[in-house]
């Protein structure tokens, strides 16, 4: 039963992700991105990672996609001309996608055949490695995000 839902939501997640990059209407693209994230949250549920599944929905559904939609709705979308596909950008994007595809496949291959425990994660199971074992990398990443935020403010601010 669990496998059925796992594959159902995994399929939905991938299908909506495809729609979100191919749809011509950007608002609908954003919505399918939301649907993809929520389906991904459901995939976490089927794998027994209830906490991560909910956090996925809160963070991506409750904050990030709203931000995307808000930004898209404030922009004048008709003023954008048709972007032509350029060979250089196509090649660069393709190379990065191929690399990502291979790393995902490799990771999937390494974990292949592992069984899913009934419940893998609550808040504690996530927090312990994050705040004890991997504290330093975690803090470094948060500083990086802070730098990005400050940078965005600095770039976006008008000179007075």
């Amino acid at each position: 039963m669990r496998e059925v839902f796992f594959y159902l939501f995994a399929f939905l997640s991938v299908a909506f992700a495809l729609v979100s990059v191919t749809h011509r209407n950007v608002i609908k693209g954003g919505l399918s991105l939301l649907a993809s994230f929520i389906a991904l949250g459901a995939v976490y549920f089927t794998a027994g990672a209830e906490f991560i599944g909910i956090v996925q929905v809160i963070v991506y559904g409750g904050a990030i996609v709203v931000l995307y939609l808000f930004a898209l709705m404030t922009m004048d979308l008709k003023s954008f001309g048709k972007e032509l596909l350029r060979t250089v950008s196509l090649a660069a994007g393709g190379a990065i996608s191929l690399f990502l595809l291979f790393s995902v496949l490799y990771a999937g291959y390494r974990f292949y055949g592992g069984s899913i425990p009934a419940a893998v994660s609550g808040a504690k199971e996530l927090a312990l490695p994050l705040f004890y074992r991997f504290l330093l990398p975690f803090e470094v990443v948060s500083v990086l995000l802070l730098v990005a935020t400050v940078g965005a403010v600095a770039v976006g601010r008008r000179e007075e």
């Binding site: 939301l34 209830e50 909910i54 409750g62 709203v66």
Partner: peptide, 17 residues
């Protein structure tokens, strides 16, 4: 559900859509 409080928050967050 163990994380029921969070689930309520998640659902009311997406209800704004």
């Amino acid at each position: 559900m163990k994380s029921a409080l969070l689930f309520v928050m998640a659902m009311s967050a997406i209800s704004i859509y």
